[in-house]
Computed example of a mutant assay.
Amino acid sequence: MPDCLFCSIVAGTVPAFRVVDTEEGVGFLDIRPVFKGHVLVVPRPHVSQLTDLPAALLPGYFALVQRVAAAVPSALGSQGTFVAINNVVSQSVPHLHTHVVPRTKGDGLRGFFWPRTKYASDEEAQSYADRVRIALDGAL
């Protein structure tokens, strides 16, 4: 879809801090992360929400989400992850995307009120992307 931001990221016409790029999908840092290292995983084809993802693509897509969810704590030293999908409501970009957010006990996240933070620079964002990418590569 030419007007879809995430399709443009998948196509490489819009820059992003990529952590993974496979046949099943692309993972990149959220530019307004809940916590630094917050990754968005998107399928390659444009689908608006989870219910639109063809059944044949589910295993590969969720295997990729699972890999990212395993890599984030390893890469960033968090205790775990919060994995979530919004469908339509609270979906700022109408392209299916799965949030993989690093979590540590006492990090202050409560319920569904997600505070947002910013990276200090592109270099800092790139360093987070690199760390998750390296952990993903090691998990292959």
Rank of each mutant, 00 (worst) to 15 (best):
V19C: 15
T51E: 15
G37D: 00
R67E: 10
G60T: 11
P73N: 11
G25E: 04
H38N: 07
E23F: 14
V101P: 03
W114C: 08
A69G: 14
A69H: 05
N87C: 05
V47L: 12
L53Q: 09
D30N: 14
G108C: 03
Q79M: 07
V101Q: 04
L109W: 02
V100K: 05
T117Q: 13
V26R: 15
E124P: 09
E124Q: 15
D122T: 07
F28H: 04
V19F: 15
V19G: 07
V41C: 07
L29Y: 07
P59N: 14
A55K: 12
V83W: 07
T117S: 09
S121F: 04
D122M: 11
L58F: 09
T51A: 14
V68K: 04
S121D: 10
V83Y: 07
R67H: 10
I31G: 02
H46R: 12
F82S: 14
V26M: 13
T81M: 01
Y119P: 09
V68E: 00
D21C: 08
V39W: 01
P102V: 01
H46L: 08
V83N: 09
P45K: 11
K36W: 00
V47F: 13
D30I: 04
W114T: 05
Y119E: 02
T98P: 06
D107I: 07
A56N: 11
F35D: 04
K36F: 01
G80D: 08
Q66M: 05
G77D: 12
K105F: 03
G27I: 11
V20K: 13
L29S: 15
P33L: 06
L58I: 11
A125Q: 10
Q49L: 03
L64W: 10
L29F: 06
V100T: 02
H97P: 03
L109M: 15
R110T: 12
G27M: 14
A84C: 05
V72K: 06
P33A: 00
G111K: 10
L109N: 09
A71N: 04
Q126S: 15
F112L: 11
E23Y: 11
V42Y: 08
D107H: 08
V26S: 05
S121Y: 06
G108T: 02
S90H: 13
R116A: 05
D122I: 01
K118T: 08
D52N: 12
L40R: 01
V41Q: 06
A63I: 08
T117K: 06
P43S: 10
H99Y: 02
V42T: 06
R44N: 08
V41L: 06
V19R: 07
Q79K: 11
K105C: 05
P54I: 05
P59F: 09
L76G: 01
G27W: 14
V42K: 07
A120G: 13
R18F: 05
F112Y: 10
